[in-house]
């Protein structure tokens, strides 16, 4: 909504969201684009010195992407987690990580026992999703997702790790269309499965 320029509508939603999460100590999301929206855009939706802007800044300050939360707030060391998880995987960094700063995910993935990570070429290239962009410009978006799938296929991985709901949905759908037997999952799912909190594939069943 914000990205499409509907700013009055976006600010009305932001105001509600700020209210919903008022009173919580932290807000953690398993999607980089959501974290980026709240952190980077919410405060600018209101006039600088309004109470709304202050509340939005407060929400921004306590909102984290899941791995960021492990890293910066809980200060968990990737190697200390030592969770077991078997598989050959490649990692797609979400574009929204660019605005969130450094990406701690690769070092957390390196700390997973049994995980064989195969880096893809042009890893930082967008998967082509971009919200309504994929609906408005399907041909451009398709070309982008095809390039991405080619990079993924070249790694020979069985699993695709991405910490953004948008990228995951788009890439999962594109893999399925082509009959590629690749499962998409986020680091949170690897952690949950590795710790025995989630049966493999449960999230997708």
């Amino acid at each position: 909504m914000f990205n499409n320029g509907f700013h009055p509508e976006a600010s009305s939603l932001a105001r509600r969201m700020v209210g919903v999460f008022d009173g919580f100590e932290y807000v953690v999301t398993n999607s980089a684009s959501c974290a980026a929206m709240v952190r980077e855009k919410f405060p600018d939706l209101f006039s600088q010195d309004s109470p709304d802007a202050e509340a939005a800044r407060a929400l921004a300050a306590k909102t984290f992407e899941f791995i960021e939360f492990l890293d910066r707030v809980l200060a968990l060391k990737p190697e200390d987690l030592g969770i077991p998880w078997q598989g050959v995987a490649t990692y797609h960094p979400s574009c929204h990580l660019r605005s969130l700063g450094s990406d701690p995910c690769p070092s957390y993935l390196a700390g997973v026992d049994g995980l064989d990570i195969r880096p893809m070429d042009k890893a930082s290239d967008c998967c082509g999703f971009g919200g309504t962009f994929a609906l408005k410009y399907p041909k451009i978006s398709s070309t982008m997702v095809r390039e991405k799938l080619a990079s993924i296929e070249r790694t020979g991985a069985d699993f695709l790790i991405s910490n953004d709901a948008g990228c995951s949905l788009s890439l999962l759908g594109a893999c399925h269309r082509r009959g590629l037997p690749i499962r998409t999952l986020s680091y949170a799912e690897i952690l949950a499965e590795g710790l025995g909190l989630l049966a493999p594939d449960e999230a997708q069943a």
Binding site: P138, L169, R177
Partner: peptide, 13 residues
């Protein structure tokens, strides 16, 4: 429509 364009190159779970 309006999701038709999505199905050009992707399925939706």
């Amino acid at each position: 429509w309006p999701m038709k364009a999505w199905s050009m190159d992707r399925d939706l779970p």
